[in-house]
Structures are given as structure tokens and as C-alpha cells.
Amino acid sequence: MSKLSDPSTWPDRYGDSLYRHALVRLRNKEQAEDMVQEALLAAYASRDTFAGNSTEKTWLFSILKHKIIDYLRKASREQPIYQDIEQLQDLMEENFDATGHCTIDISQWSDPDKSLEQQAFWQTLEKCIAGLPPHLATLFMLRELDGLSSDEICKELNISTTNNLWVMLSRTRLRLRQCLDTHWFRRNEEVV
């Protein structure tokens, strides 16, 4: 067994960084605390498997990431996914006519990179993400934040084909774009 530090020092040494990761991912303090606790207890239980190929911190982070994915997978199975897809049908009808031509005005965003420096932009993005149908938010974050492959997401969330996943990802991006357009970029233009 490779050398691990005394587990009773883990909360002080790694608690803050693990908690920040969980909080950014889950946006809920209680859930984030629970995830950190579960991850550290699971790490202690499987301490014999630590091979020393990575640092202790990296190992603990990887356990936390798996715990979070597992939590999101279980949470997303409580509600049928078709409800989320139906919610996005209206979005498609708003954006495209029967022949697939775009029916909304897509105008350029003024200096989007400058938005990244503004706290209010990130708050708006968070609101837009929070407004996504729950399954779509989960699969989108697994893709964009956790970097899971299409096959891995399909397996985790029980999605029958990668084609279905890709359609859902595209509609999620459509919805997010529209939300940011309405609540950030157009609003800022009005202010100017």
C-alpha cells in the first residue's frame, strides 16, 4: 500500500478545495457538503487501492467526481427524460419553420469576451443553466464540465443512442444561447 496521510487531516487539508469543486458543480451547499463527506469516507474505505500513481489530492478529487456523477445519474432517473425533450419542442418551433429555416433574428453579440470579466454575466449564465430542464442540464454539464464522452454519458444516463444525445445537446445549446441573448446581450444593448 502506498503512503497516504492520516485521514483525520483530510478535512483540513483538502476540505475547502473539494467543497468548492462540489459546490460549483451542484450549486447546493448541503449536497456539496454531503458529497465531500461521502468522498472522504469512500476514500478511507478503499485506501488499500491507492496505488500512488497520482497524488493523494488527485486521487481524492477523482473519487469526489465519481460520487457527483453517481449522484446526478440517480437524481436524473427520478423523472422521465421525455418530459425534458417535450419542453424543448416549443423552442424548436419558435426558432425554425417547417422547412428548417431560421425564423428568429440572430444578431451579433457585442464583444462577448468582455462579458467574461463581469460578475453579472456569470450570474446570468448560472440562471440560464438553472433554468434548463433537469436532465438536459445534467447531460450538458457531464459533457461540458466533466468532459465525459458521448458513450459514457449515454451509459450513465441510460440514453439509447448517441444520436439522441447529440440532438439533446444541440437543443440545450440553442436554449442557452437564447437565454443569454435575451437576458444578457440584448439587455446590455438596451442599457447602452
Binding site: 476540505g15 475547502d16 473539494l18 467543497y19 468548492r20 460549483v24 463527506q37 456569470w122 448560472e126
Partner: peptide
């Protein structure tokens, strides 16, 4: 996103003392 939310102060930076003690 992760770095900016922390940097902009939009998420807490630390796990509470109570939570650490409990763990």
C-alpha cells in the same frame, strides 16, 4: 466557469469548520 465563479466570489470558498469536524 469553475474558476470564475470562485474568483468572482459567487460560491463559498471554504467548507465550514462544523462540516470539517463532522467529517
Amino acid at each position: 466557469r469553475s474558476d470564475e465563479l470562485v474568483h468572482m466570489g459567487l460560491v463559498e470558498r471554504t467548507l465550514s469548520v462544523e462540516a470539517k469536524e463532522k467529517i
